[in-house]
Nucleic acid binder design. Structure first.
Lengths: 182, 182
DNA sequence: CCGCACATGTAAAGCGTTACATGATTGC
DNA sequence: GCAATCATGTAACGCTTTACATGTGCGG
């Protein structure tokens, strides 16, 4: 019910690239993957335990310093097979976007509403900052490379996120300039 | 916690336009607003009761036929004030997107993966259908009108959704043609 | 030695979907 | 009469976020 544990497959995909600790997975969600899926450590740690029970992953313990134990998880054959059938399966459900700002716009009935310019400018600032972050990230990871053979998937989704943000900003700019007496 | 009951404000916004029954609100989510937020009747009816307890809305009973009682809800002064401060408040959180397809792309490491063309074509079909639906909707609601003074918010978010879908489709098309030996 | 990042968990609560449940109205 | 739609609810379950909780390692 609810949704269908997509998070599990994301974790499998990440562990398929290389073994990781729960903490490192959490970082990935905070940075890399965060454009397309969000998850906190409080969701990740219990899920890792459940996935290990199901035989999708295993872990080995690393000791850092003198005491600190890290659990480094890796994907099993069974896990690799589950990942593969997820990727190969049809994806009939569209992306769901929950955009609070756009909803607020819906309830602004009149084009001359005094709040509109401020609301739009606020969003422009937020999305501009995000776009800058994404561009820096692409530069860092791929430089001026055009279409890398390696890490192709990563390149793809960064490109997707960049295109999306650029379009969102364009749209906001356009709406701002088209407002009455502005 | 979790999220901050945005649904509540959407309902207030809809009731601010005109009084509605729970059933009608459910229809609105299935059609109008469904592009931007989803909600089932099982979430709506309990929330209406809670909102009435809080004094944000009230209802009067209509009898259809001989027995069937409908509860028609309307917004109160208090509700109108809550709605207004929501719209006026900053919206610091960006839209969150959950896109299962793009995630799958992330885990396709190589550009020559045999599954890619099929995966992308499937998404093109889905998004094309959605775009057609949105265009029909704009035509129906606004015809060839350019920027309506009335229903401005509705026009805005429809335009936003259209722009977004168009960009998504462009991106998919571009990726498909740029695949190796294709 | 202090602060920040690293590292791993659990608890509580709300959000959201699917399923269960019931009955009335309307048009054919 | 029968089916589709109108109309209103509850229950169960899983997903997601926020908060609570604890301890180690490392660099300045």
């Amino acid at each position: 019910m609810a949704q269908k544990n997509i998070l599990q497959y994301i974790i499998l995909g990440l562990l398929d690239q290389e073994p990781r600790t729960g903490y490192e997975l959490t970082q990935d969600f905070a940075h890399e993957i965060g454009e397309f899926w969000q998850a906190q450590h409080s969701q990740i740690y219990p899920l890792l335990a459940r996935m290990e029970e199901q035989g999708l992953i295993t872990h080995s313990v690393e000791v850092a310093g003198t005491k600190l134990e890290k659990k480094r998880y890796s994907i099993t054959t069974e896990g690799r097979s589950a990942l593969s059938s997820w990727v190969g399966a049809p994806t009939p459900t569209m992306a769901t976007t929950k955009d609070e700002f756009v909803l607020k716009l819906y309830f602004v009935q009149r084009a001359d509403d005094a709040r509109l310019p401020g609301m739009i400018r606020e969003q422009i600032a937020i999305h501009q900052e995000w776009l800058d972050h994404l561009e820096a990230r692409r530069q860092l990871l791929f430089g001026d490379e055009n279409v890398p053979q390696d890490q192709f998937g990563h390149y793809l989704i960064l490109d997707h996120a960049l295109t999306r943000e650029q379009q969102y900003l364009n749209w906001l700019d356009q709406q701002l300039t088209q407002l009455p007496h502005n």
